[in-house]
Design a protein around this nucleic acid. Structure first.
Lengths: 335, 335
DNA sequence: CTGTTAGCGCCTTCAA
DNA sequence: TTGAAGGCGCTAACAG
């Protein structure tokens, strides 16, 4: 692999001249520049970005760290991040957080391979983030409340969402509304539950316990819960699954038992994933402003990168999306 | 930011001792090691991965370059790549190909920031790939046929898939089967069309032209085609949309016109995206072995990384997935 | 067991 | 307009 040195030698100029010529610095004479470029081409010279990064101490790259790199859930967030980063001339890379101690997460967070990180990966622990963050590596967290220097959080108002959707059910006349939680340690699920409780109390309806039903945020988990539920003598009026995947699993279980939704029981989810619109019946759910979330996160990051470290946490509003799984008439309108 | 030098000074040892101690090299005495580690902790020392990469000339990172970083379509491929890479102790990062000349794509491909690249991004041109590839940067392409040194291709047999699904329709007795293409320059669409033509000829059925209907591989495009089609006096017996997104758009358009699927017209798609199973009626389609594709790509990459450069192109088989959009009875079985 | 030294490839004063 | 030299932070001989 040819280096600048090789080019310099072959073109009979100094190393520094090559450096300047390659970046079209006007300080080098046109003829020299052309010769250098030509030699570089012949030698198939390729710049070594790593060396440059080391020298300049900047990578012009930010990273979004996701739990599951392949998760369809994140599309819009990434898009939001990318759009902002691109507009700033920065590159965006994504990486999965799997791999524990020596995983990519740690590499990226603690080895200065990027200029900033956006974290949406519950399995990366707070401590890793706090120790990694610093004036030269701001971190934006999307999946937790975390107060530390150079760490900034952007959150969706999960509690509000839980409240909205529960209230929606209550206003439709449902009383016995059951909550299905995600994994026990998930803040999102916890907050959605709080919103649920708040609405239930307001309507003096009997709330279910936080962990009466646990679906682990997966379709499979929701399916199991659905099976259990449908084996009971009486069904609740409505079910609030704390994410759409579980709601879809429920739907499947109920459909297999001949339980009609929403006639026999209403179902609502959370997230507004794409399939929510296509299942039968289409799922009432809560939309999270994903694109906005990514975009806001990236903007905060660039603020920090620009030296502005006084940034407040951002909380984004959710939006109720009413479809047929909660009520009969087709009003796929948002509220 | 503390460096090894700082640690060395503070601990009264040589630079190299710090280096060794930090990596738990047994050559350094236990007591020294502990002291070094302690000082490093106090100074909040963080290794600089860039410097290490520069020195070792390896990043232990591979990259998968996608057109649209957020596309849900790629989940399984990424998973396949990641699983292999992790098992080899490598990290995987993903990057979008947007950004043209100075985009991430070029940075990653030509600036040696990674040890190998897997490309699934039609907008990166062949030349960029060929010039970037080399003994120290093998490239696997998933979206094109490309013969060049250090470039290896893994493809799904699109023609076979097109053939399978068309034959399926023909065997159900359909004769007038229309093909809906993706973007004009897409090889995938082209190959699926070839398979379609092959089957049609075998059954002496009248094939449609390659570009009679173009849906651009989007749901919206399929919807428009559906509108146009349903405005015609007579409907074809069946429609082969060259991807699922378009098929879903078609379904929506037909449903709005009261056209029944599959009774009035059968519809099949291609890709077996997740929603295909949930739309009404569930969509007959062709499954591409996505996970396998990623996994095979990564394995080829590691072969090359290990110095084995004699690698043949790999072609993977597709699988017909029959659901209700092509025939009435519920046989969601694969063939 | 520890220290010295020489780079990895590039950028950047400073001098010529 | 060009060249020489130093150093970014780290690793890896090779000495001691």
């Amino acid at each position: 692999m040819a280096t600048m040195k090789d080019v310099a030698k072959a073109a009979n100029v100094a190393l520094s001249t090559v450096s300047l010529a390659l970046r079209n610095n006007p300080r080098v004479k046109e003829s020299t520049r052309r010769r250098v470029l030509e030699v570089a081409r012949q030698l198939q010279y390729r710049p070594n970005g790593i060396a440059r990064d080391l020298k300049t101490r900047r990578t012009e790259t930010i990273c979004i760290l996701l739990h599951d790199l392949g998760g369809p859930f994140y599309s819009e967030i990434i898009r939001g991040v990318q759009d902002i980063a691109t507009s700033k001339g920065y590159n965006t890379i994504a990486s999965g957080s799997l791999g524990g101690r020596n995983g990519s997460a740690v590499r990226l967070l603690s080895e200065r391979r990027v200029d900033g990180v956006i974290v949406l990966a519950p399995d990366v622990d707070d401590e890793t983030i706090v120790t990694a963050a610093g004036p030269d590596l701001p971190v934006i967290v999307l999946d937790r409340e975390l107060t530390a220097d150079y760490v900034y959080s952007v959150r969706v108002d999960n509690e509000q969402g839980g409240y909205q959707v529960t209230k929606h059910l209550l206003e439709l006349g449902h009383r016995r509304i059951v909550f299905i939680s995600g994994p026990a340690d998930t803040l999102d699920s916890e907050l959605r539950y709080r919103g649920y409780v708040k609405a239930m109390k307001e309507f003096s309806a009997p709330e279910s316990k936080r962990f009466d039903y646990m679906g682990g945020f997966t379709e499979e988990g929701g399916y199991v819960v659905g099976k259990v539920m449908s084996a009971q003598p009486i069904l609740p009026d409505a079910v609030f699954a704390s994410n759409d995947e579980m709601a879809i699993g429920l739907l499947k279980a109920f459909s297999e038992k001949g339980i009609r939704v929403p006639d026999d029981v209403a179902i609502v989810g959370f997230d507004n994933i794409r399939i929510a619109e296509y299942v039968q019946p289409p799922l009432t759910t809560v939309r999270q402003p994903m694109y906005e979330m990514g975009s806001v996160a990236a903007q905060l990051l660039f603020q920090a990168l620009a030296g502005n470290f006084e940034l407040q946490p951002v909380r984004l509003a959710t939006e109720l999306v009413v479809r047929q799984s909660s009520q009969r008439r087709d009003t796929s309108v948002t509220a």
